[in-house]
Every structure is written in C-alpha cells, then in structure tokens.
Design a protein around this nucleic acid. Sequence first.
DNA 1: GTCTATACTCTGATAGAC
DNA 2: GTCTATCAGAGTATAGAC
Lengths: 205, 205
Amino acid sequence: MKKTTTEEKILLSAKKVFYQKGLKGARMQEIADDAGVNKAMLHYYFRSKEKLFDKVFEQSVESVTPVLMNVFLEDSDLSTKITHMVEMLIDLFLKEPYLSNFIVNELSQNPEKFFLNVLDFEEGLIGKIIPVINQQIQSEIEKGNVNPDIRPAELIINIMSLCLLPIMGQSVLQKTLGIDTERMERFMMKRKQTVTQFVLDAIKP
Amino acid sequence: MKKTTTEEKILLSAKKVFYQKGLKGARMQEIADDAGVNKAMLHYYFRSKEKLFDKVFEQSVESVTPVLMNVFLEDSDLSTKITHMVEMLIDLFLKEPYLSNFIVNELSQNPEKFFLNVLDFEEGLIGKIIPVINQQIQSEIEKGNVNPDIRPAELIINIMSLCLLPIMGQSVLQKTLGIDTERMERFMMKRKQTVTQFVLDAIKP
DNA sequence: GTCTATACTCTGATAGAC
DNA sequence: GTCTATCAGAGTATAGAC
C-alpha cells in the first residue's frame, strides 16, 4: 500500500541530493534519476530548481523546530531536561547527518531565505525558549543546585555544540580517527551519556 | 613595498570566494574580478578550476594543522593547556569564519582530497596528540585533580565543539539572536572565558 | 605575462506530442 | 500527467595576438 505520488518521490530525492550537494552542486538530472522520473517532471511540479530547493529547505527547517521546541519547553526538572535535549538532538540529527550542515551552509549563502516565521525572534524558537529556560535556571540557582555564573543562552549553545559538531564533522572524524558510519553511530550513542554528564558536571555550583 | 605577484593575488581571491561559495558555487569570473586580473590568467597559472581549488584547500588544511599541533603539544599543565586551546581555536577560526565550514563541507563531498599526510593517523595531528594528552590526563587523574571518567579523545572533541560550532553557525545565530559581526566577535571573546571555565568545571573530580 | 575573442560543454528550462 | 527533443544561457577552457 505504498501510494507515494510522483510529487512526493521528487521531493524525497531532492532532499537527499540537496542535502549532500547543496543548491549549486545538485543536478536536476540526478534528482530525476533518483526519483525514477523524467527530468521534465521536476519542472512540471516545481517550476524551477530554485523553487524546488526552497521547498526542501522550508520543510527541513519546519521539521526540526517543533522537535526542538518540545524538548526545550517540556515540563520537567533541569537535569532530566538536559538529558532529553542531548538525546533528542543526537537522535534527530544522526538520522539526517547532512541536515545541520545543509541548513548552516545554505543559510549563510542566502540569509534572506530565512524568515520563515518559525525562527522569528519574537514568536519563534529562541524568543520562546530563553525566558522559560532562564526562569528555570534561576530557580535552580536559588535552590543552590546550579552554579550562579551559568547563563541560559550559553548553556543552550554549549549543549547544541557538543551534540551537533561531531555530526557535522563526521567526515573529518572518519578521516582522522578512521571511524566508519556504524561506528560513528555507536560513538554518538555512547556520547549521549558522556555529554549529559559533562554538562551536568559543568553547571554544578 | 607591496610586491604581491599576480599568482598570489589570484590565490588570495580564490581563497575568499571558495570559502564562501564552495567549489561548485564559486565562479572563475568572480575570482578574477576580485583579484583585478583577467579570467584567462587563472587558467594560465592554475590550469583549471579544480586545480585552483585543490591548491586553496591544501593551503587551508596546512595552515591550520601546525597551529593546532603546537597548542595540543605545548609543555604546560592541563588547565593552562585547555585555556590556550580555547583561545587559539577561537582566535584562529574567528579570523576566517568560513574556514571550518569550508573544510568540513568540501571534505565530505570529496573525501579522497584528504590524505595529505598532515592529518595522517600515524604521523599526523590525531596520531600524535592522543597519546600525549592521554598521558597527561592520566597523571592528573592519579594526582586526584581530574575526574577518572574523562576520556582524552572526547575531551578534545568537546573543546573543539564548544569553540567551533558557534562560529560555524554564525549565520544561524545572527538570524535567531540578531547578532551582527562585531557583536559576534565580542561574544566569542567573552566566550573564551566561559568555555574554559565550563570545561574545567566539567573535568573536576 | 597579459589581454581579447571564441570554442565547447554542461544543464536548467520549455515546447509539443501522447 | 508523462515523455522526447530541443533551446538558451552560463561558465570553463583555449587559441592567438600583443
């Protein structure tokens, strides 16, 4: 009962190719081949390469933000929240190793492609997260559980750094440490615990 | 007394353009314009776009490794070494914000461009660093200064993550937090201390 | 060594039959 | 909706004069 329409097939293949090669590096022919359809079909459904790319980019950002949102805003104490953040981040981006790189790169080349209200400062991810986390950390500091020097925004940046950079640098790690893909996965799975521990140790008073 | 030869001018401009646009995104014309020379000159000196790119890539990797090498292998106690690592990493990559992204991206698309003995497992960066750091951490653990669960390779990955990801994600940060370039620089300068502190707190027993 | 003019290739896009 | 054939433009590469 696999009822994937041509349009969906194209979008799926486009995602695959754009993720790895970027806007300029991708070829319409390659996307068509991967989807098993004619090249003209891409234009029939999406008009142009740029429009197809925009669709992929938009969907990617939109697929990521609600997940992040949920983790950051879930109702639990700080240490379980951190544990979940780490798990979710690693799981999410390990499934799509090229995703983070893709977003970072294409974004830096076309900043105007961004707003996408999803990440809007007022209404979006950051605007909502910071106050909540801020308050939570403040209360933990008052209880004496957390080092008073910790700043919420930086804590989030630190967690994301520890989870994402190894994935973004996967190819470099593979070359320098000789790690293959399966090994990488195991490495990142173990890393869930070590990163969590690392962060928790770092924020202790 | 600025005696920059045409070849050097081209290489400099090529670096600038390739860093931002990548191999596929870069245009020979743009490089020529930036260098203030004729497009034909690029081929005269470097034969093809690919060859020019290779030169730039090679120089980039070679410019980075000795710096890293020095920091990792300098003769000092662990906490000053960590302090220096953080400072050096941030200074180095803040000067060339696109460099880390460039290496990661282009490498993932052409893994074979790599070996470049500089990063060879036996002789290169990682092969030399790990044993030294390993030993140093071991001795700090025995003295009771460091948490015995800390693993050298992961410590290095953590430090690099904390320093590099914010730079790689500069464009995202600019959009989500509304940070401009000067502000980013100040942010990263302050971050030298907070990251160092964060790491030192995390490895305490 | 440097420039102009041009050849050639690749690839995104469209027209038009079915 | 899908395919074949073809066009148009962009961009790399080279020939050849100076």
